[in-house]
Simulated assay, not measured.
Amino acid sequence: MTTTLPSADALTLYGETFASRVLLGTSRYPSLQSLSDSIDAARPGMVTIALRRQLANGAATNGFFDLMKRHGVPLLPNTAGCYSVDEAVTTAHMAREIFETDWIKLEVIGDDYTLQPDLVGSIEAASRLVRDGFKVLPYCTEDLVMGRRLLDAGCEALMPWGAPIGTGKGVINPYGLRVLRERLPDVPLIVDAGLGVPSHAAQVMEWGFDGVLLNTAVSQATHPDAMARAFALGVEAGRAAYLAGPMAERDAAVASTPVVGMPFWNQDGGK
């Protein structure tokens, strides 16, 4: 009898489904054409846009917004670069007016060096934005208590980091990230920040995470579009492996070849 995996395995956030479990950032690409090619290669479920960065770079006149419209991928504005609650909330409202969407990736940064999120500020900002009708995807660490507080504030999904933004280190605290997944089994969790190569993405997907958000790992690759496609394949492979049910890890070797019919002098290792 053949067992098949579920055919409808779409990422669902706030009751909406997305065709891909890859979310792709739009900053630091060598050119708009490189960004466009990367979107085509990754076929992401959403693309993130840092409102402050794009306005500062003249996105209204350099063709960036026209490019986003041509691709037709759902937009996820973010509050990157915000260091206070009021700043993040104001930026979110500006993004809603400009992009005509209630989706927001919330970032309230608490440390310049690690770009670690501000725990207290993120929770307060999330609470205010949820009350204002936003669908908030909060950037956070693997801290379980912080995650629970964000859920209490009304968030329906979390975006924990794998490592500090832009480092490419992969998951620096596997235990903490896996505990977060195990303790919040019904909450959509998207690993955001710190992934560097497709194997990092495949790994977290094998652990049961619901998606990954990528930016620097793609935009700073030698060939961004090729890396975008590689990440998409890594995410697909990791998700398929999770659904397939990986074997249990063992400490000792277990022969895959049966000893029935083997000469007796080989069955005990030749002793």
Score class of each variant (00 low, 15 high):
L23N: 09
L24S: 07
T26M: 02
S27V: 11
S27H: 08
R28N: 14
R28T: 14
Y29N: 02
Y29P: 04
Y29C: 00
Y29L: 07
Y29I: 00
Y29F: 14
P30I: 05
S31G: 10
S31V: 04
L32W: 06
Q33H: 13
Q33P: 10
S34Y: 10
L35M: 15
L35S: 08
D37L: 06
D37R: 02
S38C: 04
S38L: 02
A42M: 01
A42G: 03
R43Q: 08
P44H: 07
P44V: 02
P44W: 04
V47E: 04
V47Y: 02
T48K: 15
T48E: 11
I49C: 14
R52I: 08
R52P: 10
R52E: 13
R52L: 14
R53K: 15
Q54S: 13
L55D: 10
L55E: 12
L55R: 12
L55K: 10
L55Q: 11
L55V: 15
A56M: 14
N57P: 14
N57M: 09
A60H: 11
A60D: 10
A60Y: 08
F65G: 05
F65N: 02
F65K: 00
L67C: 04
K69S: 07
R70L: 06
R70I: 01
H71N: 15
V73E: 04
V73L: 04
L75H: 14
P77E: 13
P77F: 12
